[in-house]
């Protein structure tokens, strides 16, 4: 496998295999400590990141490999005007696998055409974020015991939320998933996902602006942050940023076994008092993220 750009680059059996592998690594980490000895991973982060970069780096270190790269475009030759193609070509000469985040949509795909090493998309603008989706799927499977027959609510910024787009595409391949899309009009799901995935595959979905009215139907609530960096206009951001804030009061009608997910970082869209609620799984997602990325690195390097 030479690239993971979109979650749909992976088949359902491949995703299931990665989830099984991640579970095994989590249960028996000592079996994997030397698997990537002498392997190097380049992390090319043209845009800031905490969790994704740290989890990839921790994953590689826990597999016995090494990491090189940059976490800010300003500290690389990109600041001198170097193209993505040339940067990646260079990095791929020095490494066995490349992990890349870039603010422009499609940049990792361009990178995969130029790279000698496999490329993993660690987020391209508001477009795709497949390894967050693997993390989300792994968490749902662990917490709910299944990926089908679920009612999944997506709340907040469904327009620019790349994790939402990837997760909807991934869950669309499991049977019996009902989608509830909760957002202000300005941040509705883009048509290429709504028409291209939900309508095209005749999947059950509803759209609403009111989170509380649908709360009791949900098995999974996926909260998102309204992202300042996706707006060209500050006024629009300020108007929309507090559209949804999850509080204990709003959770009163939720099922006792519903799970709350969030790709993080959060600003204020989940009140901190919810962190201790047993339904809050967003820090479990962070933990799970490292293990599923370990499984992915092994797969892409062709290591059993």
């Amino acid at each position: 496998m030479n690239k993971l750009i979109d979650i749909l680059d992976l088949s359902v059996p491949e995703i299931n295999e990665l989830i099984a592998k991640a579970s095994d690594i989590m249960a028996n980490p000592e079996n994997y400590r030397e698997k990537c000895r002498y392997k190097k991973m380049a992390t090319l982060f043209f845009e800031p990141s905490t969790r994704t970069r740290l989890s990839f780096e921790a994953a590689m270190y826990d597999l016995g490999g090494k990491v090189l790269g940059f976490s800010d475009a300003q500290s690389s030759s990109v600041s001198k005007g170097e193209s993505v193609s040339d940067t990646v070509r260079t990095a791929s000469i020095y490494s066995d696998i490349i992990v890349m985040r870039h603010p422009k949509e499609g940049a990792p795909l361009v990178a995969s055409y130029k790279s000698e090493a496999p490329v993993i998309n660690a987020g391209d603008g508001g477009h795709n974020h497949p390894t967050q989706t693997l993390t989300d799927l792994f968490t749902i499977q662990k917490e709910k015991g299944r990926l089908g027959n679920l009612t999944v609510g997506f709340c907040g910024d469904l327009k620019f939320g790349r994790t939402v787009h990837s997760l909807i595409s991934a869950l669309s391949r499991y049977s019996g998933v009902r989608f509830v899309l909760i957002s202000p009009n300005e941040l509705k799901l883009p048509s290429y996902i709504k028409d291209g995935v939900l309508v095209k595959n005749k999947l059950e979905f509803t759209e609403t602006k009111d989170l509380e009215s649908v709360m009791e139907s949900l098995d999974v609530l996926y909260m998102t942050r309204v992202q300042r960096e996706r707006f060209f206009n500050e006024e629009d951001y300020l108007r929309l940023k507090d559209s949804y804030i999850l509080t204990p009061e709003k959770l009163k009608t939720a099922k006792s076994d519903m799970i709350i997910l969030h790709p993080l970082p959060r600003v204020n869209e989940i009140h901190v008092s919810i962190d201790d609620d047993p339904r809050a799984c967003y820090f479990e997602q962070v933990r799970n993220g490292k293990y599923i990325r370990m499984a992915l690195i092994l797969k892409m390097l062709g290591i059993e």
């Binding site: 193209s83 993505v84 193609s85 870039h102 603010p103 422009k104 949509e105 499609g106 940049a107 795909l109 361009v110 391209d124 603008g125 508001g126 477009h127």
Partner: peptide, 13 residues
């Protein structure tokens, strides 16, 4: 025409 697309800044692709 998407200003967020990589084609808006990367030459030669």
């Amino acid at each position: 025409k998407n200003p967020r697309c990589i084609t808006s800044t990367e030459n030669g692709i």
